[in-house]
Design a protein around this nucleic acid. Structure first.
Lengths: 336, 336
DNA sequence: GTTTTAACCGGCAACGATTGCGTAAATTAT
DNA sequence: ATAATTTACGCAATCGTTGCCGGTTAAAAC
C-alpha cells in the first residue's frame, strides 16, 4: 500500500522525539539550528509531506472548501468555479467540487459529505428541486460557514452574491420590445428558485413600462430546469400552437435557453418569425443557429467574490453578524 | 464552531465506554441487544455521524476517489464525470473533482493534494502540457491505484480506457473525402498527448487509402489545446491564406473544433468553401453555424468503465498485475 | 460444588501531527 | 562557587475511531 513517511519515521531514524521533529519542521524557536538542519534535510530526502488528514482531525481545519453546484456541464458554473479556484489556490485553500444534477436528494448527500469531511466552509448554488433548506440551516446554525452564490435563498442569513437578475431580465425583454415585438413569452426555471422570480419581475416591469399587457398564458415554467429537453420542447410547441401566438420568447434560464433554441430548430421555425433572448453563459452562444440575444452573467467574478466572502467568514476571529448580499450587473449581447 | 456529536459524547451520556458504543453502532456480536438499542436510539437523537476524517486516519481508506481532468467546461469531461459518479455513488464512494486547466504545474499540485487527502484511487485524464510523468509514476509505485481515461500515457502500467481515436479520425477524414474534398487540413492538439498521435495516424491512413498525398504543410498543432483561441484562429488564417489552400479541415480535438468554427465565422468564410469535421462532445454542436460533422466519444460510458476498473484495483485483496486497456468506439455524425 | 463457557463490556493503544508542560544540561549572572 | 536563567529537548495528551486484550458476571456443564 501507499505509505508516505511520517514524523515518527523521521524521529526514529534521527533518534529524536516526534515533538522535536515537528517543531524543527515548523521552525520552532526552541530547537537548535543544527538539529533543524538535520531534520529538514532528512525530511526532504524521504519526501516528507505532513498528513492533512491528521491535521484536519486535530485542528478541525482542512484548508479546503466545498463547492456545490447543480451542473458542471453548465458553463456558468464551470466559469464560477474557475473564479473560486483562482482565489482559493492563491490563499492556500483547496476546492472540492460536487454537483447535484438539480436533485434535492443528491444535494443533501453531497453537502453532508462535505461537512463531515470537515471542509472549512461551503459555497453553494441551490438545486432547482430543493424546497427544504433545513439541512443547510442546521449546518449553518452549528457554525459551518456558508456563502450562497447565484441561486441564493432568503432563509439563511449569511453572505450572498448574485446577479442583477431583475435588470438583466428587464433589459433583455426591453430589447425584444424595441425590435417591435409585442407578444413576448417567458420560459422560466423552477419557481422555487430566487432567480426565477427576480427575472420574472424584471420581465413584467419591462412589459409594464412599455404598456404591454401581461398575459399569464405566455408564461411557462420548466421546473426540471432544462435537464429534460422534452419539457422545454413541449412548452415551446404549446406556445407556438396558440391562436394568438407569441412573436418572441424570453428565456430566463441558462440551460433552457439552449433547449429553446434546439426546440425552435427541431420544430423548423423561421428565425425571423420568432425572436429569442435569454440568459446564457455558454461560450458558444454566439455561434448558435437560430441565434439569440443573450444576457451574460459575470460568473468568474461571482466565484471570486463568493470565495472571498467565505474566507472572510472562515478566517474571522469573531462571529460575523453583519452580512452583505452583493449584486453583479449583467451584460446584454444583442444579435448583430 | 461546527461540532458534531462523537462516540465519546455518546459514551459519556450513556455511561458506557467508547469501544462499547462503537461496537454497538456497528452491530458487533459482543454487545447485548438491549445496549445496542439504547445506543442506536441515542445516536439517532443527537444525529451522530461517524467522522470520516478519523476513519481515514485510522483505516487509511477514505471511500473517496479523486478525479483529475483538464477542464470542467469541456462537455466531454463533464459527461465522463457524470458517468463516474453514477457508479461511484452506487458503490458508496464519493468523488472529489479537480481541474488542471491543462497546466502541468496545477496537475502536480492537485494530484499530490488528492493523494495526501488519502483518496483510495485516482482517475486521471492528462493535461496537454504535461511531459514529466514521474510524480504519477512515484505515486503509482507507492501503491496508489490509478486509472487513466481518454488521455492515457504509456509510461505507467495500469488499467486504461480510451476511445478508438484511430477509427474516429479515419472515419471523419473519410467522410470529408467522400464529399469530394481532397485537400484536407488537420488541426490538432499538443503532440505529447496520446490521442493527438493516434488521431493523426487515423487521418493519415484515410488519406493513404484514398490515394491522397499527405502534405505536412496542412498540419497545425495548437499546443495550447484550444485554451488560447488566437492560436487556433492564426492557424486557420494561415491555412486559408495558402496558395493551394485546403478545402476541408479535420479537427482532432474537442476544444479546438469549437475554436475552429468560431475562426471560420470571424474570418467570414463561406461554409460551402471549406468543410469541417472534428471531434466534439459539445451538447450544442448540432446547433452551431458554420456546421460541422463531428465524432462523438462515449464519454459517460468511459467514465463508468474507468471507475469500475479503479474499484477493482482498490478492492482487490491481492496486487493486480494483468492490466487491460479498453477502447470504446466512436460515433460519426454527418451534417444533414 | 467446582470448573468451564459463554455473554458483555471496559481499558489501552494506535493512526499522524501538534502543543503545553516538565526537565536536564549548559550557560550566565551574582 | 552558587543561584538564576536559558537552551534544547522529551513526555503525554489530544483529535475520533477501532482492534485487541482483559475482566467481570452469570448460566451451564461436569
Amino acid at each position: 500500500m501507499y505509505k508516505p513517511a511520517t514524523i515518527k519515521d523521521i524521529a526514529l531514524a534521527l533518534q529524536l522525539s516526534p515533538s522535536t521533529v515537528s517543531r524543527a519542521l515548523r521552525d520552532g524557536y526552541e530547537i537548535s539550528e543544527e538539529t533543524k538542519k538535520i531534520v529538514v534535510a532528512y525530511a526532504k530526502q524521504v519526501n516528507y509531506k505532513s498528513n492533512p488528514i491528521a491535521l484536519s482531525l486535530k485542528n478541525k481545519r482542512s484548508y479546503s472548501i466545498g463547492i456545490v453546484v447543480p451542473e458542471l456541464a453548465n458553463s456558468f458554473f464551470s466559469q464560477a468555479i474557475a473564479g473560486v479556484e483562482s482565489i482559493a489556490y492563491e490563499k492556500g485553500y483547496h476546492t472540492i467540487i460536487t454537483q447535484t444534477h438539480d436533485s434535492a436528494e443528491r444535494e443533501l448527500i453531497n453537502v453532508n459529505h462535505l461537512a463531515q469531511r470537515s471542509v472549512d466552509g461551503l459555497l453553494i448554488s441551490m438545486s432547482a428541486q430543493t424546497s427544504d433548506y433545513s439541512f443547510l440551516k442546521n449546518l449553518h446554525d452549528d457554525g459551518l460557514p456558508i456563502v450562497f452564490f447565484d441561486r441564493i435563498i432568503d432563509d439563511i442569513d449569511t453572505f450572498k452574491v448574485t446577479s442583477d437578475n431583475f435588470s438583466g431580465a428587464y433589459n433583455a425583454t426591453e430589447s425584444l420590445i424595441k425590435t417591435g415585438r409585442k407578444k413576448i413569452a417567458l420560459l422560466s426555471n423552477a419557481p422555487q428558485l430566487s432567480i426565477t422570480n427576480t427575472r420574472l419581475a424584471g420581465y413584467m416591469k419591462a412589459l409594464a413600462d412599455y404598456h404591454i399587457p401581461f398575459r399569464t398564458e405566455l408564461i411557462r415554467n420548466c421546473s426540471k430546469g432544462g435537464n429534460d429537453y422534452h419539457e422545454v420542447e413541449n412548452a415551446v410547441k404549446e406556445l407556438l400552437a396558440m391562436p394568438d401566438k407569441p412573436d418572441a420568447i424570453f428565456v430566463s434560464s441558462d440551460r433552457i435557453s439552449i433547449s429553446c433554441i434546439r426546440a425552435l430548430k427541431n420544430l423548423n421555425f423561421n428565425p425571423k418569425e420568432i425572436a429569442v433572448a435569454g440568459f446564457s453563459n455558454s461560450d458558444v452562444v454566439d455561434l448558435l443557429q437560430p441565434s439569440l440575444s443573450y444576457v451574460r452573467q459575470k460568473a468568474f467574478e461571482m466565484g471570486q467574490i463568493a470565495v472571498e466572502m467565505l474566507l472572510k467568514l472562515i478566517e474571522s476571529k469573531y462571529p460575523i453578524t453583519e452580512f452583505e448580499t452583493k449584486v453583479l450587473n449583467t451584460e446584454l449581447h444583442l444579435i448583430k
